[in-house]
Amino acid sequence: MDNFIERLKTRLRLHRQAGLYRRPPEIIRREGASLILAEGRVLNFASNDYLGLGVSEVLRKQVGRNFEKYGSSSSSSRLVSGNYSLIAEAERAYARYFGYEEALFFPSGYQANLALLSTLFDSGTLVLFDKHIHASSVKGLALSPAQLAGYNHSSLNHLRKRLDRAGERETVVLTESLFSMDGDLLDVPGLAGLKDRYGFVCIVDEAHALGVLGEGGCGVARPVADIAVGTFGKALGLFGAFLLVPAVVKEHLFNFASPLIYSTTLPEAHAASAIDILALLARQDESRRRLRDISLEMKNGLREEGFTVQGDAHILALEIGEEGKALEVSNRLRERGIFVLSARYPTVPLGKAILRIGMTALHTREDVKRFIPSLKEVMVRI
């Protein structure tokens, strides 16, 4: 046991020395666009609550009523005694709203990607994936018997070369519509052109786009996506995730997806709340407009001050580089009452650390005017 403990301590010490150590602060509560920590209130730029539904009093009351009515747990796997009609009704509603044949709910986006990508393919399938896909997708592919080949981030030219070499094999392209760290959007028309030419199956993770982008928050990838991954835990203000799929894929997952078969399903109260969220989502055009405008104001303001920042929507990636420096910038901003993520390896490539700025409809122009001068002050002192 002593050797075991020492090995863990050594690994943690080396992790700390490399500027990669993670120890998030305890959060007492959330209030609008702010967090309350032990040291006081901080303005939160590290949230995925893009529309503010996660702190909506309306949704809070609806969810509370649903859990009071239906109880707190399904108490079973979906494949045993947890296949409630209300869950199936909610899944049908999500499929209709987002324009797919079927939907399937999961307790988390990580589990959804794991179930989907570890189950669908066989050894004759070639999966071509954008090299910046989410860690859960990487893990799902690692459990798949498929042949794997990455293509350079957002490079349709590199993808085309991969497709040219694929031949007649069953081919799948896996990507995201809004990348969670880079903040850039998928070139949907360009990918659609490749799909028309090569006929591949296309899977798009829309976790950061659904609810926010597209008409009614329906995302941007439907013209090209055969399968889409969505989440409740970001713009939709709840928890859990969902897949949008053809009916045969849902049937296949019910029969072969270990993460679905051997997990307790989400409760009926979650399904009732998910239905309530769809009604709210359809009425969020003003919040979506506010989010678009405040995100653009932040990006333009940072660039005017000489910062290198990327992002096509509400996720902005501000270039820092060295891991220790990114952590120090984040810590010093927190001392000034601003909370922002220092995204470091392995979340982003080594030596390419960023500040990952998550904008929400709860942010104001005053928040932007506070953030940019604070960042300038911190950067001058490092």
Rank of each mutant, 00 (worst) to 15 (best):
D182T: 15
S144T: 05
N157V: 12
D184T: 13
L141S: 03
L143C: 09
F179S: 00
V138A: 10
V173C: 09
L174P: 00
E176Q: 07
G183C: 05
D184Y: 04
G150N: 05
R162L: 13
Y151C: 06
Y151L: 05
K161H: 15
R165G: 13
L174N: 01
K131I: 03
L148F: 09
V172G: 07
A166H: 01
G140P: 02
S154G: 09
G150F: 09
K161L: 15
Y151K: 00
P145Y: 07
G167H: 07
L148T: 00
K161R: 13
M181K: 09
R165S: 13
N152K: 09
S137L: 14
H134Y: 13
D182P: 14
V138Q: 10
R169D: 05
V173E: 05
R162K: 12
G167L: 09
N152G: 12
L163E: 02
A135R: 13
A142L: 13
H132G: 04
A135P: 10
G150Y: 08
L163S: 04
S137R: 07
S155A: 02
H153S: 05
D182F: 14
T171S: 05
S177Q: 00
L156K: 07
R169A: 12
N157M: 14
R169T: 07
R160K: 10
G140C: 04
V172Q: 01
T175M: 01
Y151F: 03
A135Q: 10
G140S: 08
K139D: 14
R165Q: 12
